[in-house]
Design a protein around this nucleic acid. Structure first.
Lengths: 223, 223
DNA sequence: CGATTGTATGTTGTCGACAGAATGAGGCCC
DNA sequence: GGGCCTCATTCTGTCGACAACATACAATCG
């Protein structure tokens, strides 16, 4: 049996990933303070790794720092979502065009599997997770580290927003699900065709298409 | 005299800004290790603020972490510059369109002053600094914090790249300078006109126009 | 002489501790 | 009873110290 490389994972990284999952999952109510001593006690580490993780999370937009230095879970406003959406309209076309240039067959297979899974999605949480994974694959296949960094931050913030709006457990309408499946399939095919320009424009239309959906969602916070 | 707000600046923030300036200025050769003890001794602080600053700089792309955890100044390759350029092609149109929507008269004044100063630029360092300030104003006027964060990271990395290519002290040709002045003026006018779409397309053409310039520059590292 | 082992140094990751500031409770004076 | 002052608590920002790990070098053994 070939020995696999032993990689030591720093506590700061563990804390970072664990905290980001917890925040996105809604374990901390929006606006709540995350005090370093309590986090340290909960996670069983000292404050140093906690602080380093919090700095990383702040730059990813999952926490924010008070003027007094207190760490809080940001309460995402409609304005925030508009910012995120505008960024995605700018970035998704780039991701799609890069994918059209660089994607290999295994990427296509993964995307197809993702679309197939999306057809069985029941809740908004399901479809949102699958949608995130779908675009994750596309962005990663583009092999642009700056793009990946930017995208992952936006993705996490969208997930956080979904949680804060309490939309995760909402059942998804057949129409919305079919819409995502269709547009994802279109996107896959244009990426597979290998035409960057066409992929970019289609991706742009795809994201921009959500523009009229978002206000209606924000207008119905919890029903 | 109205008392200005006393702002407590954390050491970590001071270290961060000071280090980023030093790195961008080329005080550390590309690929050199930044050991925390020596930085701490040099700056007269303990390692804790150093570490926190380094984490921030890593996410901004000004340093990178070895597999062994050592902090090093990244050696930007042509591939890195292509990544950055691709991101700017995606992002600058958004910045311009947002500016066209939100910019106020004082922004226009600042941009005009910047263009005027650019006409007197002597070296590539001058024109690059003024260009960065120009786009800084535009991005800031768009009032999108995510965009601002993304842009500032790219900007710093471009500055670092200029330093590493030893292009800062190179005299600028009249033609290049005039080209920058012209395109900046065009951009200012279309933003002032308030048409987001037109501003976006012009900004996109503007950045994309540098595509054929970059290879020629990279082909002539130090002459 | 080459390979291997032991060692010595430098660096990172983590911890516990302390000072300063902010916040809130409780008592005191008017 | 209301406003103000004092005090206790809690948190952040920072520091110094220690262990684990990696690296380079010297010494040892075949």
């Amino acid at each position: 049996m070939p020995l696999s490389k032993v990689r030591r994972v720093s506590l700061a990284h563990s804390v970072s990933s664990q905290l980001s999952r917890a925040i996105v999952a809604g374990d901390f109510p929006a606006g709540s303070q995350l005090s370093e001593p309590s986090l340290a006690a909960t996670l069983g580490v000292s404050r140093a790794p906690i602080r380093e993780a919090l700095i990383e999370l702040e730059l990813r937009g999952l926490v924010e720092f008070d003027p007094q230095g207190h760490t809080r879970v940001p309460t995402l406003t409609p304005a925030d979502l508009q910012e995120i959406h505008a960024m995605r309209v700018a970035i998704d076309p780039l991701a799609a065009s890069l994918a059209a240039e660089h994607a290999t067959t295994d990427v296509f297979a993964a995307l197809e599997a993702n679309i197939a899974a999306t057809k069985d999605a029941k809740t908004l949480a399901d479809v949102s997770r699958l949608d995130a994974e779908f675009h994750d694959r596309i962005v990663k296949s583009g092999r642009n580290r700056r793009l990946m960094l930017c995208w992952s931050g936006l993705r996490d913030q969208v997930e956080l927003w979904l949680t804060q709006m309490q939309l995760r457990h909402q059942a998804i309408t057949k129409r919305t699900r079919q819409q995502t499946v269709d547009s994802h399939y279109e996107l896959l095919e244009v990426i597979r065709s290998g035409d960057p320009k066409q992929a970019a424009t289609l991706a742009g239309d795809h994201v921009a298409g959500w523009t009229d959906l978002l206000p209606t969602v924000t207008a119905v916070p919890n029903s």
